[in-house]
Design a protein around this nucleic acid. Structure first.
Lengths: 199, 199
DNA sequence: TTTTTGACTGAGTACTCATTCAGTTTTTAC
DNA sequence: GTAAAAACTGAATGAGTACTCAGTCAAAAA
């Protein structure tokens, strides 16, 4: 239990770093073993294949991300549902900023490729997105109760807003646009989406 | 000119199909040569390396995409700038639908990785995005002249709307959400963003 | 003390893949 | 028609790769 545990964790940690930074194909098993100061075989002792390790990294990220989110929302009080939406947006952006490399994982195309034939992988992705979108949806519903948000389709609007925020994170990590330069416009637009008179 | 031209084009065409469908790493040179009925060496005669071929595919896609867009916009008349924005959105979605596989190219992470050390690749991506965003921006400016759109920051709102639409395309290709199920909400939201009273 | 167990090792295996190049065929120029 | 140039070929190369496995070692169980 003492060292073995540590080594498996270390492998997972280094694999997360390397897969996040360089992707699946540009990270070899021996890259990971070197970074962890472990023999190649040890990796296969703990994880049966490279793909399994890759999935373990995703699973780990999923758990960290979801618990970080619920911790944040539980520890904050929001005046209105609209404020809660805003809080969720800015928390998502700050998380993406803080663990930028990890967020790369979400945008790594290879996961979606694996997901096509691996239901397990698909489920991880699905859980990540649905739990994130859920946060927005719940905030919208709360806002509709306290009248800070209009009677819109909460589920669809939540998806749209999440898409928007996630897309901005994506452009930011690809260095094609800076997220902070557009923060105010983003919040503004989300307010418009949720508060403007229904047509 | 006769056959040589054809073969180079055929290689580019098959490479586009295979890279779009399976990605860079899951497409080998011999996959491409088999699909084109050409010897491996021929590929290297026309393109110096696999990466160069990959970039040629991107360049080709860029040109096709941009010209398809301007052809569409020039052949249509729009009542207002707001209608033009709507037209651009629905055209983007229909293009993404029609050449779904090709659009994968835009979301293939590998390009962004190459872009990090290859200014040429970065430029292609930058041109694709900036010309697409430009279309939205111009439509917004026209709308501001004809009063169908409020006095918003055209450049930033154009980026936001593009991000939103592109993000939806992404979720659609990954089969995590169906774009057509959300079309009305999308248009609605864009109207809100561009027409709601400024705070 | 002896045995057993499970974590760990790293050289070896079997393979894939991009790239090369010496040579052949086809096209163009004269 | 002939020479030069260009297009094309595919077997060979060599650098990598994920994964295996026979064996080491330390600590727990007997």
């Amino acid at each position: 239990m003492p060292r073995s545990h540590t080594k498996k964790e270390a492998i997972l940690r280094e694999a997360t770093n390397l897969f996040s930074e360089h992707g699946y194909w540009d990270t070899s098993i021996s890259d990971i073993s070197k970074a962890t100061s472990v023999a190649d075989g040890t990796i296969f002792y703990h994880f049966h294949s490279k793909e399994e390790l890759f999935l373990a990294v995703l699973k780990n990220f999923k758990e960290k991300l979801i618990s970080a989110f619920s911790a944040h929302l539980n520890s904050h009080e929001f005046e209105t549902g609209m404020d809660m939406v805003e809080g969720a947006i800015s928390f998502y952006l700050s998380q993406a900023n803080k663990m930028e490399k990890r967020f790369f994982l979400l945008h790594r195309h290879h996961y979606y490729q694996i997901a096509e034939h691996n239901p397990n992988c698909w489920q991880h992705l699905e859980e990540i997105y649905s739990s994130l979108i859920d946060i927005f949806e719940q905030a919208i519903r709360i806002g509709q109760k306290d009248r800070s948000i209009k009677a819109v389709d909460a589920s669809k609007k939540a998806f749209l807003i999440f898409t928007l925020v996630d897309g901005i994170v994506r452009f930011n990590t690809y260095k094609l646009y800076r997220a902070d330069a557009i923060y105010d416009e983003l919040i503004d637009s989300c307010r418009s989406i949720l508060q403007s008179p229904t047509n």
